[in-house]
Lab assay of single mutants.
Amino acid sequence: KLLSSIEQACDICRLKKLKCSKEKPKCAKCLKNNWECRYSPKTKRSPLTRAHLTEVESRLERLE
C-alpha cells in the first residue's frame, strides 16, 4: 500500500492505542462500548529543516 492511502484509526482508538477496525460511521470498538466515534483530519507533519537536523546532530555528539 502507498503511504498516502493508509487509513487512520478513529480518535479514541488512537488515543487509547487500540486496534481500530476503521469502519465508518462507527468502528467496532466504539460501537461495542457506545463511545462517540470521530475521525479527525490527518495532520500534516512539517518537513525537517536543516537547522533542526544540525541541532539534533550536535546534541547527539555531546551525549556520545
Rank of each mutant, 00 (worst) to 15 (best):
50 R>L: 07
51 A>C: 11
21 S>F: 01
16 K>R: 08
8 Q>N: 12
11 D>Q: 09
3 L>R: 08
9 A>K: 02
23 E>T: 14
40 S>D: 02
59 R>K: 10
1 K>I: 04
59 R>Q: 12
7 E>H: 04
55 E>A: 14
44 K>S: 09
58 S>Y: 15
59 R>G: 05
62 R>V: 14
54 T>G: 07
40 S>H: 03
33 N>V: 08
26 K>F: 15
20 C>R: 00
51 A>I: 12
20 C>N: 02
38 R>K: 10
60 L>C: 13
48 L>Q: 04
41 P>R: 05
35 W>H: 13
42 K>E: 03
43 T>M: 11
61 E>C: 13
28 A>R: 14
22 K>E: 04
41 P>V: 08
38 R>Q: 12
53 L>Q: 01
38 R>P: 05
60 L>R: 03
58 S>M: 12
54 T>C: 09
27 C>E: 01
31 L>S: 13
8 Q>G: 08
34 N>S: 11
36 E>Y: 08
49 T>A: 01
52 H>V: 01
55 E>C: 13
50 R>C: 00
8 Q>W: 08
49 T>D: 01
64 E>G: 04
18 L>Q: 08
54 T>K: 06
63 L>R: 08
43 T>R: 10
62 R>Y: 07
43 T>K: 06
37 C>A: 06
34 N>I: 14
50 R>W: 03
21 S>W: 02
37 C>L: 00
57 E>C: 05
25 P>A: 06
16 K>H: 00
22 K>N: 06
45 R>D: 01
51 A>N: 14
62 R>N: 08
44 K>A: 15
56 V>C: 14
60 L>K: 09
6 I>Q: 13
6 I>Y: 11
61 E>K: 10
5 S>F: 11
14 R>I: 00
36 E>H: 13
32 K>T: 15
48 L>H: 02
23 E>A: 14
44 K>H: 11
46 S>T: 09
46 S>Q: 01
55 E>F: 10
24 K>Q: 14
53 L>R: 07
31 L>H: 14
40 S>M: 07
44 K>P: 13
44 K>E: 07
6 I>T: 11
28 A>F: 09
46 S>R: 01
22 K>D: 04
62 R>T: 13
13 C>W: 05
34 N>P: 01
44 K>R: 12
48 L>F: 05
37 C>R: 04
51 A>S: 09
30 C>L: 01
30 C>I: 04
20 C>D: 03
63 L>F: 13
46 S>K: 02
37 C>K: 01
14 R>T: 04
62 R>H: 10
29 K>M: 06
24 K>E: 14
64 E>M: 13
6 I>R: 04
56 V>A: 00
1 K>F: 13
41 P>N: 07
57 E>T: 03
20 C>H: 02
45 R>I: 00
19 K>C: 06
2 L>M: 14
32 K>D: 07
5 S>V: 08
38 R>G: 13
61 E>A: 10
37 C>H: 01
61 E>G: 15
